[in-house]
Design a protein around this nucleic acid. Structure first.
Lengths: 356, 356
DNA sequence: GTGACCTCGACAATCGATTGCACGGCGAGG
DNA sequence: CCTCGCCGTGCAATCGATTGTCGAGGTCAC
């Protein structure tokens, strides 16, 4: 039997005071208004009866739901689960609950979901879906709903965000490749409409420049999406344009996977003929053949940080906009290893090419 | 500015009727009580004003939250995201929202989370965490909270469930191996305290029996958890006991991954010396070297089905307990391919072994 | 023409909390 | 001893919906 829940009145009756007194005694912010003795008796009685605040009633009265909406493109993409765990763990700590939704990067779906979030009276939003100019973000600003972006940013910078230091990550990769003797490095960029794709692309160009390498426009292809199939197509396009590169910096692991596919089709061997790097360090990329050199992003920490930033804003409506950047680390694996040891170069690549 | 939301009273005022009339006109179940003409005017006005039911107020009054708790062990485990998507998509269709929580298989955490779910007044629970005898499930029964189990079952069968047909899946795998010429087949079982580990183990034994193969107890090892490291240890134990088997049926993909690791350490080649099969068809196991033969479980459909079962129960409190079983399919890849073609057998395995 | 019945919608209570306001009692100061 | 002020608590309104009850008005039969 669902025993009836204990309410404020029950506690009040038990102690012999008015419900409002109980409410005040139990609320840390107003507890000071109540005589210490009574407050203690209330607390004890509440504990004994097993009183729990009814969040629904609380929400109705205060118009706060202690609930946060979390929008991700697709939870099935393995970068998001750790982010989500980070968010949920940090939110739980502050007494908030997450409501998750997948947008599939579909603007229509996004609108519906957003509508639903508003209806559910979420106190704030964490968005992993932002485009560089984003209607959802603008709506949040217009409606004055606190939001924090994660993983991506909007160009205007008007909303708090927690992102990976993409520039630093790309730098790590490029330096690593140069250390391995590469000078002709191609880039398989992500969609330039996403801040990640854009930032990594720009960072790639400046990393080349910083190393004194010339930038050949033929060696950069932007993919339409962060997916394996787009990666494959992108690599084929790179290859069609010019085959003189000895390394590819893919803007994320899925694109790198596409490179593997295309390379296999073309008979190009990784890493003997070509070095490939990814970005994200998704689960299992260490199990690929060869294991993928990539950049590990602190996803869990990013999630937790985003949640904390949002909670801070929720507790203090005019906390300043904050942009947190977390440092990634390079994970070297066999897809780029032992290059100079093999003493290989263009000649070898040419041989493969003619064998096609 | 957060414009004030439109309420029932606003609509009522606009049409010139009482709020209760609006409520009834908008609720399909009670709409019949209202004259068609008024009902239409109300509907139109509501649409024009952009009225949206306030779920908080609704929840307070009806003691229903249109919210469902979803407990999974760890969203980071790649089998769960598709399940969760299935759940959320199906729930959304019925106007419900999921609240997700990760238990980490920790009973203490589970209790806290459950308490929180009760406090949030979830209308029902979907559990992917059930042990064969489970306190959470018992609590749900005691409190009369509708629940549906997914992926796992409880021994008592007292709660609805949606599971994969593990027996059928194991049968597919064993038959496939036998077709490939294997007769000495080992089994790396999961924890027997979980219904999946238990069912797959039992099915393995009966599949052997059905094929007229003898069951050698040395060829079965139960792992302590569904993890790569446990899989590795389990395989080493199998190997220590007896090396005459030519194939391993792992109870899930992570265990199979552990087999790959151990095999590599021992110098055993897959599939040339040993066939390995998994279970689940996790993302990227097709990228392993060699790609893993495994059983694909319809995770998304399971999630969706679980949600629908729960919603049915929510709409009709005495819907019968229901156990749905979904059929998996065999995905043949290189980890078991072309065995008989290689004409290999014990002799070859012996050779490898002596080479250690 | 009148009474019984039925239909439709208004009224008001309610869910469980928060919070502005009023009030009673007490201490201090004149 | 009276009054003023303040402190601590009770009172009651409120958030936005649902729903049992009641009454007004219309219809129909006698």
């Amino acid at each position: 039997m669902a025993r009836p829940r204990v309410t404020l009145r029950d506690v009040a009756r038990r102690v012999g005071v008015h419900p409002s007194t109980v409410s005040r005694a139990l609320n840390p912010a107003t507890r000071g208004l109540i005589t210490e003795g009574i407050a203690r008796r209330v607390t004890r009685a509440a504990a004994r009866l097993g009183y729990r605040l009814n969040p629904i009633a609380y929400g109705l009265k205060t118009n706060r739901s202690r609930t946060v909406g979390v929008l991700v493109p697709d939870i099935t993409n393995p970068v998001f689960p750790p982010i989500i765990r980070g968010i949920e763990d940090a939110l739980a700590e502050a007494g908030y609950t997450a409501i998750l939704a997948n947008t599939d990067n579909d603007a229509g779906r996004e609108r519906v979901i957003l509508e639903n979030m508003f209806a559910r009276r979420v106190d704030g939003l964490i968005l992993a879906t932002a485009r560089r100019r984003d209607p959802v973000v603008e709506r949040c600003i217009a409606e004055d709903l606190p939001a924090v972006l994660i993983n991506r940013m909007v160009d205007s910078g008007a909303v708090s965000s927690v992102v990976n230091d993409d520039a630093f990550g790309v730098q790590l990769v490029v330096r690593h490749l140069i250390d391995r003797g590469h000078t002709r490095i191609a880039h398989l960029a992500g969609p330039l409409t996403l801040s990640t794709g854009n930032a990594r692309h720009r960072s790639f160009l400046s990393a080349l420049k910083a190393a004194g390498l010339r930038n050949d426009a033929r060696r950069v292809v932007a993919c339409g999406a962060f997916s394996e199939s787009e990666g494959r197509l992108g690599f084929l396009e790179l290859w069609r344009r010019d085959r003189s590169f000895t390394a590819v910096v893919a803007a994320n692991d899925l694109l790198a996977l596409g490179c593997y596919d295309a390379a296999r089709e073309l008979g190009v061997r990784v890493p003997d003929d070509l070095a490939v790097t990814g970005f994200n360090d998704m689960p299992f990329v260490d199990k690929l053949q060869p294991p993928l050199t990539t950049v590990r992003i602190p996803h869990y920490r990013m999630g937790a940080q985003a949640a904390r930033t949002l909670v801070a804003r929720l507790h203090n409506r005019d906390a300043p906009v904050e942009h947190v950047t977390l440092r990634p680390e390079l994970v070297v694996r066999a897809s780029t290893a032992a290059l100079e040891a093999a003493g290989r170069g263009t000649a070898r690549v040419r041989a493969v090419r003619s064998a096609l």
